[in-house]
Write a protein that binds this DNA or RNA. Structure first.
Length: 723
DNA sequence: CGGGAAAAGCTTTTT
DNA sequence: GCTTTTCCCG
């Protein structure tokens, strides 16, 4: 096997003898290459059978990528290898051992939306006040308990509130059992519990998997750690790869301590550091190192590069968020025109989604194509979930969440009253909604009108099931779309929205077709396999990634990606670090790691921008520049200001004045005279308008202008000229 | 049952 | 302030 392309540290990790290893892989240090090479090495040099390797990642994307790379390296399909997410692998395990796990063979997976609805229903059924016990909180509580491996009876009762939450957890647990559905956390928990209690199975799997590898280990939570330990047993080799400095998911249960714990629990673990960075310039790495060195209790790591220092980091102090957005957009235009940068090489990163709007508007005004990552995913769309709910009911009549969803969608005259009586009957007789419905019909419980509607529903589902039995998967889906009336229903929905929905539904037929062609259904019935795929594989729409678009996303979704040019927007106290993290030193450290992630996304050029005034939740707020800006050595920064009087970065300002190339906007500001209300003005982009209001004076002046074509906007005086 | 008015959010997200 | 969800009534 050729390892020439790897540096000494990478080679050390790849060729390490069997046994435990902790690879601390800095940003851009070639961590994925090490993982894939390691697996290939195990197969080729250590003669480990592919079926005895277990590799875990956090996202499907990472898992698919890893599998593809390994297949390319080994020139054989890696089908027998267990490569996947914690959830995906747990699912595979539970499908194989559904009986031992006490699940129906046709068990379905609940996504968080289904889970939410189900919990809300449980809260109502317990006659609890939704305002005192919001379903969101219960959902959070239940998931947190499951992530700590605690079943309802194992939760410590601290006070009345917790006691009630436990009741909700218990009732939800029973409802899931009855409906034959399990949520995401259950996939892990049930796998863990089964392995823990069933010695025979445990022995089998511990004997099978000789080598276990985990990517992004800093993101593991308590149950994932326990899960891994159980699969690993005492005699197998475990390699974990991670970076404590990139742990940004503490808020959803990730335990950064798991990395430290690993060295204790897995005896003789060797630590290998990957610190050579192949992504960023020296300047960017120096900034990142300085920033993260402010955090306490790190395992310690210093990124370096053989490459050049490159350009300084540009810090821009915007007047307000619109000004900030225009700065970014102007720079994007310049880069596009003057250099060879294409738009897709530029990314705008921000702390929270709400920030994207202003930037999008600015991009739109200049006609620059862009793409916002992290919107509603395909399988989460309403119309898709409707269609899937029909398929779920076909596969499993007891799927209550699916039943609730489609009983009156499209509307077929089954009202809330009818539904409530079905729910009550189900609850008092411990039945599924479907069975309760059948019983009530038999008992002649309903009015003639309701009964007709209900009977036609029951017939519809039964007919669908019979008719689709022999059909191929995509034909099955197609049949259901029409027979359910969903196509007709969304055709009636007027406007763009309805059209998109129809397109999405048609796409579902294609998706099913594609799915069955790709094969790999793991001896599950195709429909069940497809439903599981829809629940577990969130399918990020990479389809149009080839379009040349500026990339917009949150810092969280940027993890793992890289861009030649990065704009890090909104570098202000209260926004970044976020005000909800301000009082907790641990949370501040996580924010800092988030900043570190953002900085290390940049390959050649990094811009960091902030606004002095920002409108949030309807209020205008003045914020100081982010502390993270101060934590980056001044000599790495070139600050651009639209005015010269005061330094933006407070006490550290003097050092910044040595920067080159700044002051782009000074000339305009200095020659600017004050505007007065009623004056006619001109803006380079917005055209002509009338001054409605002025605030402040001189170059600091905020001017409200009503433009002839684009409406009313507040701008800084320096962007305006008298007509 | 649909549409409009009122009210409720409002940090980060994968599975 | 703006957008999404819920609620209420014709």
């Amino acid at each position: 096997m050729i390892l020439n392309s790897l540096n000494p540290a990478q080679q050390e990790a790849v060729r390490a003898p069997l046994g435990h290893q902790l690879v601390l892989a800095g940003a851009g240090s070639g961590k994925t290459r090490v993982l894939t090479h390691r697996i290939a090495w195990l197969v080729e040099n250590e003669k480990i059978a592919p079926s005895r390797i277990l590799a875990v990642t956090f996202t499907n994307k990472a898992a698919n990528e890893m599998r593809a790379r390994i297949e390319k390296m080994l020139h054989v399909p890696a089908k027998s290898m267990w490569i996947g997410t914690f959830h995906g692998l747990s699912h595979r395990f539970l499908r194989a051992h559904w009986q031992e796990a006490g699940l129906p063979q046709s068990f379905q997976i609940l996504d968080s939306d289904d889970q939410f609805r189900m919990i809300r229903r449980v809260i109502h059924a317990l006659n609890l006040d939704e305002d005192r016990f919001p379903p969101k909180e219960s959902q959070w509580f239940i998931n947190a308990q499951k992530e700590e491996c605690r079943e309802p009876h194992q939760v410590e009762v601290r006070d009345f509130t917790v006691q009630t939450q436990i009741r909700i957890y218990q009732a939800y647990h029973e409802a899931c059992l009855r409906a034959g559905v399990i949520d995401f956390a259950d996939l892990l928990l049930k796998t863990y519990k089964l392995l823990l209690t069933n010695a025979e199975l445990r022995a089998h799997y511990q004997d099978r998997f000789r080598c276990l590898l985990v990517d992004e280990f800093q993101d593991t939570n308590t149950i994932q750690y326990a899960w891994l330990k159980l699969f690993a047993g005492d005699s197998n080799s475990v390699m974990i790869v991670g970076d404590d400095d990139q742990s940004i998911y503490g808020w959803r249960g990730a335990r950064i301590e798991n990395i430290q714990r690993f060295s204790k629990d897995f005896a003789g673990a060797r630590i290998i550091r990957l610190e050579q960075n192949y992504r960023s310039t020296g300047t960017i790495l120096k900034a990142a190192n300085a920033l993260i060195s402010q955090n306490a209790g790190r395992l310690g790591k210093n990124l370096w590069t053989e490459g050049k220092d490159g350009e300084p980091i540009t810090v821009y102090a915007g007047f307000n968020e619109t000004d900030e957005a225009f700065f970014i957009v102007n720079r994007i235009r310049e880069l596009k025109q003057k250099s060879d940068h294409v738009l897709r090489e530029m990314a705008v990163l921000y702390r929270s989604n709400a920030q994207s709007r202003v930037i999008e508007e600015a991009l739109m005004q200049f006609g620059i194509p862009y793409r916002v990552y992290g919107g509603l995913r395909y399988f989460d769309r309403q119309e898709i979930k409707d269609a899937l709910a029909y398929l779920r009911i076909i596969a499993n009549r007891s799927d209550d969440p699916a039943f609730e969803r489609i009983i009156n969608t499209p509307v077929r005259g089954i009202g809330d009253r009818t539904l409530v009586s079905i729910r009550e009957h189900a609850k008092s007789h411990a039945l599924t909604l479907w069975d309760a419905l059948l019983q009530l019909i038999e008992q002649k419980h309903f009015s003639t009108r309701a009964e007709t509607a209900l009977l036609s529903f029951v017939n519809l589902i039964n007919t669908m099931t019979e008719r689709t039995l022999a059909l191929e998967l995509h034909k099955q889906v197609e049949y259901v779309l029409y027979a359910s009336g969903l196509i007709e229903h969304y055709r009636k929905e007027k406007g763009e929205k309805g059209l998109t929905r129809l397109e999405n539904l048609e796409e579902l037929v294609n998706a099913a077709h594609q799915f069955s062609q790709d094969g790999v259904t793991d001896d599950m019935p195709p429909l069940a396999a497809f439903l599981a795929y829809a629940a577990l594989e969130s399918s990020d729409e990479q389809a149009d990634a080839y379009d040349d678009c500026v990339q917009l996303m949150t810092l969280h979704s940027a993890k793992g990606l890289e861009f030649p040019v990065v704009f890090l927007a909104g570098c202000e106290e209260e926004l970044f670090p976020h005000y909800l993290s301000m009082n907790d030193p641990k949370a501040i450290e996580e924010e800092r790691r988030l900043c570190y992630v953002g900085v290390t996304r940049a390959m050649r050029k990094l811009y960091m921008t902030y606004a002095e005034v920002r409108r949030t939740y309807g209020k205008e707020a003045y914020h100081r520049p982010s502390r993270f800006l101060h934590e980056i050595p001044a000599e790495l920064i070139d600050e651009i200001r639209f005015r010269t009087k005061t330094a933006r970065l407070g006490n550290h300002a003097q050092a910044y004045s040595s920067g080159t190339g700044g002051n782009h906007f000074t000339t305009a500001a200095e020659t600017q005279n004050a505007f007065r209300v009623g004056q006619e003005v001109r803006h380079r982009i917005f055209g002509e308008g009338i001054v409605l209001d002025c605030e402040g004076d001189g170059e600091d002046m905020k001017v409200k202008v009503r433009f002839a074509n684009v409406g009313t906007k507040v701008l800084i005086a320096s962007y305006l000229s008298a007509k």
